[in-house]
């Protein structure tokens, strides 16, 4: 056999044998693989973990009750400090027998006459005026400024339901009023008096806004009650209060109204003041304002 060449038949036989062996091998391999797949224990796929933490946004601090109470506390402290200064100023004024006359709601039809009376007594006073009234009687406003009276702001509507309707409402009215006064008389007044006074409807928020915008809120320490008494009794009322206030060592800031009966009986009061050596002065932007302190009494109208 050695070295003996294969004939064609032999070659075919060998080729067929190899093909057969190969087929057997491949077939066996496939079967083994298939069987091994069947018998192999199933492997586990443990899914990787997602992140599940979740977050919700935090509320604004500015709009919170806590911030509101902080701002209120700050505003009240500020107002208290200013009020102390105002008291000190009024104590100094008292030593010089100073009196501050103030007239709200004007200028009325009697405003010219009121100025005449004051001029006659060489008295100074401050007028807290309503925007529409100033627009109706511009000449009086100009006269007040020209004659060196004090001019201040009393808002636009004089309606408590409007001027205290929102946190920004008093500021809005006073800003508008300030603009009217400036347009008419060319003066910038920071003096404001709230209709019916700053207690109870001028809330701490409103006070803070007015202050931040440079306004100085003036109340009074003597209420003439001229708006209620409507006759000469208000004069006696004021004189009585001046005498009472003397004991506290404070200069009086008197609330009156620019109206006919007040103008009519005002000379009686001015006579008294002259006779007792009082000197009248006007309020100015530079003075620390005498403002009613909230002390838990301020609340919203709503």
């Amino acid at each position: 056999m050695r070295g003996m060449p294969l004939n064609r038949k032999g070659k075919i036989t060998i080729f067929l044998m190899l093909t057969l062996i190969l087929s057997l091998l491949v077939g066996w391999g496939t079967i083994v693989k298939a069987n091994s797949g069947k018998n192999k224990p199933t492997i586990a796929l443990i899914p990787a973990q997602p992140l599940s933490s979740s977050f919700k946004p935090k509320q604004s601090f500015a709009a919170s009750d806590l911030n509101h109470s902080i701002q209120n506390k700050k505003e009240l402290s500020r107002e208290q400090a200013v009020n102390q200064k105002a008291q000190q100023q009024l104590e100094k004024d008292h030593k010089h027998k100073v009196i501050y006359l103030t007239f709200d709601d004007g200028p009325s039809l009697e405003a010219d006459q009121l100025l005449d009376v004051l001029d006659h007594y060489n008295a100074k006073a401050t007028f807290f005026m309503l925007g529409p009234n100033m627009e109706s009687r511009k000449h009086v406003v100009k006269r007040m400024v020209k004659e060196d009276f004090g001019v201040g702001l009393h808002g636009i509507t004089h309606d408590a339901h409007k001027i205290y309707s929102s946190k920004a409402a008093p500021l809005k009215e006073m800003t508008q009023d300030q603009k009217i006064l400036k347009e008419i008389a060319g003066v910038q007044s920071e003096l404001v008096r709230l209709p019916y006074g700053s207690i109870p409807y001028l809330t701490v928020d409103m006070r803070s806004l007015l202050n931040k915008n440079g306004f100085k809120t003036w109340d009074w320490n003597i209420d003439s009650q001229d708006w209620e008494l409507k006759d000469q009794r208000f004069v006696q009322n004021v004189i009585q209060d001046i005498q009472n206030l003397e004991k506290t060592g404070m200069a009086p800031v008197i609330l009156m109204h620019d109206k006919a009966t007040t103008v009519h009986y005002l000379p009686q009061l001015l006579d008294y003041l002259n006779k007792h050596g009082y000197q009248t002065k006007k309020l100015t932007n530079a003075m620390p304002p005498l403002t009613f302190q909230c002390e838990g009494r301020c609340h919203s109208m709503h």
């Binding site: 009750d65 806590l66 911030n67």
Partner: peptide
């Protein structure tokens, strides 16, 4: 995180005093 946010909310509802 929820507890922390709730505490923050409680805080905002308090008064300064």
């Amino acid at each position: 995180s929820t507890k922390e946010r709730k505490a923050y909310k409680t805080l905002l509802a308090l008064q300064i005093d």
